[in-house]
Design a protein around this nucleic acid. Structure first.
Ligand SMILES: [Mn+2]
Ligand SMILES: [Mn+2]
Ligand SMILES: [Zn+2]
Ligand SMILES: [Zn+2]
Lengths: 143, 143
DNA sequence: CACAGTAATGCAATCAAATTGCATTTTTAT
DNA sequence: ATAAAAATGCAATTTGATTGCATTACTGTG
């Protein structure tokens, strides 16, 4: 699915600025989530650090990006599926966090329904698997 | 199950200091996980901030505590089940993060096995449900 | 139980992440 | 083209975490 930053901005009635377009382009480059530090490094001085924070926050609020926290408390961002909205993120798929390369994948695996104890009402679910990703597994085999 | 801080320290061949005992006591007070900021506040100036960091880290390494990250990237700590070791944490239960009181519960619900895509080898799993906890649900009904 | 070696603690300093305030620049509607 | 509103960049601040080192506390041995 092709990402069109300009359309996305329009759809969410956000002003079209080159910084906002740039951030979406960068995140759309790869299917794996990108961490805030990585993004910062890639964008270098094209975009001010503070502006990046603000853009990421607004994108999350609007349901354009979803944020996945890794075990170090670092934020990672990926483009949301089209069903996400300002009211609710539909991010009910499993994430895979590679302990070798530390990349985070949005897997096409749905989180199974789980029965909560009496009195607990779950409205959303977050599942992350930790282990070795496809690429890292291949690298090991080659050597 | 009753927690005995002194025994726990012995079992893991850690030196017995009043700060270490204090931290375990505090965490054992409640079955819900406690956040680092809360802990810091509760311990006040009994224990230096830096010492607390070091104690929590060593407890996690040793498999005495497990760390649960909330959606803000804040660390929360709970006593591990007895089956946890330095080699491997067995924390395969579901966590419940209340969006109202922000408490994190270790639920007695096991994470169902999920099939990973080809090439991805998961070694551990982390599942957190977000919603309203038992206590907060009761509070709502009362009003 | 004293003592020596070793490890843990507390404090100050440093590093890093995130937020805030405000002047300047950019966008968009008219 | 213009004006109002919003976004950006920069400096300053706040908050969170780590490091180095002198002092203090623990533990095993005699
Ligand atoms: Mn995802
Ligand atoms: Mn737990
Ligand atoms: Zn990998
Ligand atoms: Zn609650």
């Amino acid at each position: 699915m092709k990402i069109n930053p300009v359309n996305i901005l329009k759809e969410h009635s956000l002003k079209h600025t080159k910084q906002r377009v740039r951030v979406l382009e960068e995140i759309a480059l790869d299917t794996v989530a990108i961490s805030q530090p990585e993004l910062e490094k890639k964008l270098g001085k094209e975009i001010d650090r503070v502006t990046l924070y603000r853009i990421l926050n607004i994108y999350e609020d609007k349901g354009i990006l979803h944020r996945i926290m890794d075990m170090n408390g670092t934020a990672n961002y990926a483009i949301c599926s089209s069903s996400c909205s300002e009211e609710h993120h539909h991010d009910e798929h499993v994430h895979f966090n590679c302990t070798s390369c530390s990349k985070i994948y949005c897997l096409d695996v749905t989180v199974p329904k789980m029965v909560m104890p009496h009195g607990f009402k779950a409205v959303s679910m977050n599942t992350t698997a930790y282990g070795i990703c496809e690429k890292c597994n291949l690298l090991v085999k080659e050597n």
